[in-house]
Amino acid sequence: MRRQSFYRYLMSLRDPNKHDEITQFANDAFYDQGFPKQTDDYHEVSDYLEMNASYLPSMSIFDQVWQGYTDKMDN
């Protein structure tokens, strides 16, 4: 069984009432029409964000979320 996409996991972190960096990343990615929504590949998502996601102030935020994603998917 294939694990859920990173985007789907990221969308579970959305919250209009919270304003921390991770929640803001999720909220902003929701409006990003080009976000790679079907993949679970780190490099594909990372490359996309580095080239296209001006809304993400630091790739370390992505790395934190990716770690949470892999922790959840590996359990």
Rank of each mutant, 00 (worst) to 15 (best):
S58L: 08
S58Q: 12
S12Y: 01
H43F: 11
P57C: 08
M1D: 09
M1V: 11
M1W: 09
A29L: 06
L10D: 02
W66P: 02
W66Y: 07
F35V: 06
Y69D: 00
E21A: 14
L49Q: 04
Q38K: 14
D20M: 04
T39F: 04
Y42A: 02
M59G: 05
D41K: 10
T70H: 02
F30I: 00
D74L: 12
P16Y: 10
M11E: 07
N75G: 12
P36Y: 06
D47M: 06
P16Q: 11
H43T: 09
P16D: 11
Q38N: 14
D40A: 12
L13M: 13
A53P: 09
Y7Q: 05
Q33C: 05
F25W: 07
Y48I: 04
D32I: 01
F30L: 14
D15E: 11
R8T: 08
N52G: 01
Q38C: 07
Q24S: 12
D40G: 11
F25K: 03
M51K: 15
Y48R: 07
Q38R: 14
F25D: 02
Y69R: 03
K37E: 08
R3V: 10
Y9P: 01
H43E: 13
N17V: 05
D40Y: 12
N17G: 14
M1P: 10
K18R: 15
T39W: 03
F62E: 08
S58N: 15
V65S: 06
M1N: 11
Q4V: 03
S46Y: 15
N17D: 15
E50W: 09
T23V: 13
Q33D: 10
A29F: 05
A26D: 04
K37T: 06
Q24M: 13
S60F: 11
F6E: 00
R14I: 01
Q33M: 10
W66R: 02
P36I: 04
Y55H: 07
Q38M: 11
I22K: 15
W66L: 05
N52K: 11
